[in-house]
Design a protein around this nucleic acid. Structure first.
Lengths: 206, 206
DNA sequence: CTTTTTCTGTATCGATCCCTAAATAAACCG
DNA sequence: CGGTTTATTTAGGGATCGATACAGAAAAAG
């Protein structure tokens, strides 16, 4: 029942981590199998034997990215005591993630498949699902805030969630354009004005 | 001095317009010469004779996109009587542009080269310059608002400009993910809360 | 007319794309 | 040891990439 046949000559986890870095840095279509083969340190037949095809490798890379980076945003959102603190923590976590030295700038989920040939629309759709999950988490948390009285009952939860998704994803574009971490953190602070204005609209406690 | 030799058998402007549509819809690397040739209705030698190479055609397409779409945003920003109205008009113009039936969703300047292979970094840089010009226009307008007394003298013009650039570009990502025009217009309204909060910080008139 | 110039259509070019067949190497089991 | 299983190496296949060579066609110039 133990490992049969010739053992794998490379560390699958390390190879996947390198693939994440490449896809994150250059996007799905910006990375070729030759790039992956060179970066992961394995020949293409080993790559295909271990990961299937380019698309499957990318899907695994997306999952790994979530475990090591992406999920932190939603965790920050859910982990805070108030929706306001949660949203701020999520945005700040993203601002820091996309401007961390040694990591590619920008978020892989946001940027890795924004412009693709129609042949790869499954890849586009996969990332879109991931982003939709973030929006859903935002809506859920904001709706709870309405129930808790943190936000007034008249709050348009959907539009507020869309606004924060816009900022969340926009941070990646600004990071790619060279925005510094401080500039993005200040951007997040500006974004929180919307929350405060909504909270103030009717008879909601501060 | 008149037209010598065999006359061109297609309308250069119409062909360029079709190229704009393709690059806009699928991005620089998402469109092949074969796609362009088919879409523009001309064989590839005619394409190369008229436009140079793929990169030069893209640059012309970017310029045309600005004339027919992109410049409207900055015009809206500059044309208004107040900075607040200008920023709102710019964001609203973008929200409408990226959700117009018959046009590709999202802004070409924002999305057409977000993930590229390193071989095409000149294309990436070109679009980045265009986006920087928008941020500069924002900073200029906000600085004037400080001079006019519309915003307090303590205003951090750069961070406020970065915030609105974040929203402006983020709108394209949301549009790609299926956000409706109404959702984006509501998003713009939320974004204006930041302006109002800054205007209210110190002794500035409403 | 002939010559010159420019564009068009066919038929590619070499490079690169993603992927795989075939032979070899390294582990297991008996 | 031989036999089985799995991974690696080498080499390359079919398709597509961006870009062109070449010959023919359509205009102006002489």
């Amino acid at each position: 029942m133990g490992a049969r046949g010739r053992p794998r000559g490379f560390d699958r986890d390390e190879a996947l981590a390198k693939a994440v870095d490449l896809f994150w840095r250059h996007g799905y279509e910006g990375v070729s199998i030759a790039d992956l083969s060179a970066g992961m340190g394995i020949a293409s037949p080993s790559l295909y034997a271990a990961f299937g095809c380019k698309e499957q490798l990318f899907f695994e890379a997306v999952e790994r990215f979530g475990e090591t980076n992406g999920n932190r945003m939603v965790s920050a959102l859910i982990g805070a005591n108030t929706a306001r603190a949660g949203v701020a923590a999520m945005l700040n976590a993203m601002a820091e993630c996309v401007t961390t030295d040694g990591k590619p700038t920008g978020c892989m989920i946001t940027l890795a498949a924004t412009n693709c040939s129609p042949a790869n629309d499954r890849v586009v759709e996969k990332l879109c699902e991931n982003r939709r999950a973030v929006v859903d988490a935002l809506k859920l948390r904001l709706a709870r805030a309405v129930g808790d009285g943190e936000l007034p009952g008249t709050t348009d939860v959907d539009s507020l969630a869309t606004f924060y998704a816009t900022v969340l994803n926009g941070l990646s574009l600004q990071a790619r354009d060279g925005a510094t971490r401080d500039a993005l953190l200040a951007t997040v602070d500006h974004a929180m004005a919307a929350f405060e204005r909504v909270a103030r609209t009717n008879g909601a406690p501060a």
